[in-house]
Design a protein around this nucleic acid. Sequence first.
DNA 1: TATTTATCGGAGCGATTCACTCCGATTAGC
DNA 2: GCTAATCGGAGTGAATCGCTCCGATAAATA
Lengths: 208, 208
Amino acid sequence: MAGRGRQAEAARNDIRLLEAAHEVFTTQGFDAPVSAIAKRAGVGMGSLYRRYRTKEELLQRLCVIAVRRVVEAAEDGLAESDPWEGLAVYVRRCVAARSGALAPVAGTIEVTDEMLSATRHAMELAGRLVARAHEAGVLRADVSTLDVSLLVEQFSRPAPRPPTGTDHHVRERLLAIALDGLRAPGATPLPGDPPSTDWYEGRWGTTS
Amino acid sequence: MAGRGRQAEAARNDIRLLEAAHEVFTTQGFDAPVSAIAKRAGVGMGSLYRRYRTKEELLQRLCVIAVRRVVEAAEDGLAESDPWEGLAVYVRRCVAARSGALAPVAGTIEVTDEMLSATRHAMELAGRLVARAHEAGVLRADVSTLDVSLLVEQFSRPAPRPPTGTDHHVRERLLAIALDGLRAPGATPLPGDPPSTDWYEGRWGTTS
DNA sequence: TATTTATCGGAGCGATTCACTCCGATTAGC
DNA sequence: GCTAATCGGAGTGAATCGCTCCGATAAATA
């Protein structure tokens, strides 16, 4: 065993718990049973509920971590010298992590300040990534940052069944197709207007 | 009122029931409560369960009708003189009807002969649509019929929230992007091999 | 109009599932 | 070997779902 004593085991459990929660929630949706997470983490319910006093608390913690990963993906994208590759890296990483699957939870649980600021940061970086691609003329002019975010969301929707390796592989193919569709110039103009920021932010407000 | 008497009302109820079931199941998933369908149709539970003896029976009937719609979409696509427009019409119609959302149900309920033959017919027509586009050189060479079907499936996944008009509009934009990505020649080759037919058909078999 | 009779619609029932708790078993630290 | 903290899962109360049962309603008939 790496680490020593019960505290080390607790710390390890915490990590395995977050990984399991990410896997379960993003693939099965937020109404997945907590017991499924405990089982996947190889941890008892008691240990889970000692660390997180409620399902909502676990979800909040998970969201912060997930958004941090999006920020990292955006930073890595900006670090790419080629504007197109930078955007593509960002989108691929987000979809691989199923970042979009966590977005709809915001309407279900209370949004902490930590979640809010992390999300703002992520959106700002994504905006820069898109702007840079636009300026370089490699991204079709009629797509907005929100379109890109929504594309990620569309591709990270929970599957009706537990995804296999082949499922993952298929999704990469479809994403490659969509990425090609993002390149400038677009073959056919996009229908309607780009989605408004108001709508995007207000989407999680009205629970009705 | 159009029609006369209780029998006319029963017939009307049947139609409203199927429309409501389509709407509810495709947007909320198959574990949506039957009562939600009855409510949306403006019909009591009693009337619903007189017409369909079980939830599974309703689902089976619904699947047959949904696949028929796919067949119609494919026929209309083949009726188009332009091979690309034909394929695009087919995909757009399928996504608008959320046809892909019904596919995963096959692993949950018993597949009737009617469902099976209708599905085979639909797949055959879709294959012709794709082959025609390939021959005309308007569809990128590295996408298969299965890729197209899976793209439709991806875009008809149930949303975590009841979709608004704007949601619908946004999905059309994303679909337009993906359709552009399908056109020949692809900007970047698709990763990996196209999905195999065995995998596609076996996907609904193993429930584990 | 009075009576019959098929249909309508929703309250209620048993089964299932879920978030969460409680407690005996286990093991690190001394 | 003793103590005390942690682990893990069976158990609890509440909520939900599929489905049934039955009083209310209105078409059909004389």
